[in-house]
Amino acid sequence: MILETQNLTKQFDGKGGFKDVNISIDSGMVFGFLGPNGAGKSTFVKTMVGLLYPTSGFAWIDGFPIGTIESKRQIGFLPENFKYHDWMTGKELMKFHAELCKMKNPYKKIEELFELVKLKGHENKKVKNYSKGMQQRIGLAIALLNDPKVIFLDEPTSALDPVGRIDVREIIKRLKDDGKTVFLNSHLLSEVEMVCDEVAIINHGHVIAEGKLENLLSKNTYVEMVISDYDSQLIEKISKLAYNVVFKDGKLTFKVKDKDSIPNIAKTIVDSGAKLYQLDSKTSSLEDLFINIVGKDEDVC
């Protein structure tokens, strides 16, 4: 595990923040951390990078307790609400951060990163003259300066136009290919769906769902079948294998907890002697899943 937490909690006078978060992330994963505004996402990331002190619990990055110099050496971080020292030029800013990372000869790396975040040609412009999107790009470059093992990105595309968002997605994929672990904090669900291997959903400071993205999404697979020559025993059998089973006008609709149940259900139908004319399955999007899970959590709260 490159990142692990055990009952990690950060609260402010007993309120807000997050509580008892237990997550484990393997090396080379892109991990999406989702939640509505105020759910505790940024507080969690700030705690992981050592800007906030946990109220209780433990966490490690690459085996080092969070907040220690050793764990800080392993990470890169693009904060959400940031402002860099805008009196410097882009190049000076990068050099400053490289010096803070104690990099000996950072010039080649700086050049590579300017190219990667598509700021080539703007190196000698003062940061105060950068657009918000350009500032986000240089923030990303700074997060990658020390070649970190784990990169925390807090809403990395919030100020970017659609082209910029695609660029960031490509960078994330490239980082994954290079074996880096990316912790992506975002409420842009379509973006998370495109790049993440695993996700956790947090609401009111509690993780309410966590796992591989495909597993979470397949739990919400909706199936529609057109069948004939069936009997009530078949409907009973299907009800045991699926849920929300509805039969109307020759159409049988239900949901399955994972996609592997679909062939079993189809076999049950065929074995019973009923005729199966059509089978459509549709996996819901991350947005559907998010609304479903967060919506239920809101009802409970």
Binding site: K46, V49, G50, L51, I69, K72, R73, I75, F77, P79, N81, F82, K83, Y84, H85, H97, L100, C101, K102, G139, I142, N146
Partner: peptide, 14 residues
């Protein structure tokens, strides 16, 4: 207050 500190103090700097 500006948030510039976030990008500084996550680094290996006491």
């Amino acid at each position: 207050e500006s948030g510039a500190i976030y990008a500084l103090l996550y680094k290996p700097l006491k």
